[in-house]
Design a protein around this nucleic acid. Structure first.
Length: 244
DNA sequence: GGATGTTTACGGGTGT
DNA sequence: ACACCCGTAAACATCC
């Protein structure tokens, strides 16, 4: 059976739920997080069906983002101004589709009350960094009690050490991991064990400045998401979509 | 004002 | 049959 191209659905509705499509979009991005407008763009670029009735499906998609705990809203970094927050996948949500169906999940991903509270607290701390950063940029007097690094204690991935080894440090400056996925963009392909890498490419610096606490916290947060994703080894069955 | 985000409600479909 | 996931609509709030 020939492998259908990503455009092969034409004007037909692709066999993926909005949750699947959103997860694919997020996972296709270098930092595994996207603003809403980019999620829209990913979907309309690849699936012509979604170039029509945009009001309808975009409303549904926003509903899914807000309603499902598997999607986490990350406050926008102050050095990346723009509209809306970034959306990412909760690290514990990667086995949602382990029955192989991208249309209907095995089970809804639901955080427990405590987990939800912890996550909210972390993101509130991140937003607080954001406000403090912006206030300082604007020349305002220093805001009260900016949370220190020790106060920013991520709890999303308790199995991880507070300082992920994957986060490179060069010359005292933390860098963002800016690697594009090397594998085909399918849910199952992306979540397979990492293929042997050769040779390792040096990380690309994205900021030539001393990073403020907010950015460092955000980067640690992002690195944990990536590390948690790589640590998981779920079992998926193949599906035809290939989005390079 | 438009984009983004939250919440509630409801009917259809699917898995067990 | 029942539980629950999914898609859709809609009202409303918030943000840029």
């Amino acid at each position: 059976m020939p492998r259908p191209s990503r455009e092969s659905y034409g004007d037909q509705k692709p066999p993926y739920s909005y949750i699947s499509l959103t997860a694919m979009a997020i996972w296709s991005s270098p930092e595994r997080m996207l603003p809403l407008s980019e999620i829209y763009r990913f979907i309309t670029d690849r699936f012509p069906y979604y170039r029509r009735n945009t009001q309808r499906w975009q409303n549904s998609l926003r509903h899914n983002l807000s309603f499902n705990d598997c999607f986490v809203k990350v406050p926008r970094r102050p050095d990346r101004p723009g509209k809306g927050a970034y959306w990412t996948l909760h690290p514990q949500a990667f086995d949602m589709f382990e029955n192989g169906s991208l249309l209907r999940r095995r089970k809804r991903f639901k955080l427990q009350k405590g987990e939800k509270d912890n996550l909210s607290a972390e993101l509130a701390a991140l937003a607080s960094f954001n406000r403090a950063f912006l206030a300082r940029q604007a020349g305002a007097p220093p805001p009260p009690a900016i949370p220190s690094a020790s106060l920013y204690t991520p709890t999303m991935c308790p199995q991880l050490s507070p300082e992920p080894a994957e986060l490179p440090e060069v010359g005292g400056m933390t860098m963002l991991v800016r690697e594009r996925p090397r594998r085909a963009f399918t849910i199952e392909a992306l979540l397979e064990p990492e293929p042997p890498r050769s040779p390792p490419s040096p990380p690309q610096p994205v900021m030539a400045m001393t990073l403020p606490p907010y950015v460092m916290a955000a980067q640690r947060y992002h690195a944990e998401l990536l590390a948690a994703a790589h640590a998981l080894r779920p079992c998926y069955i193949p599906h035809p979509l290939s989005v390079a």
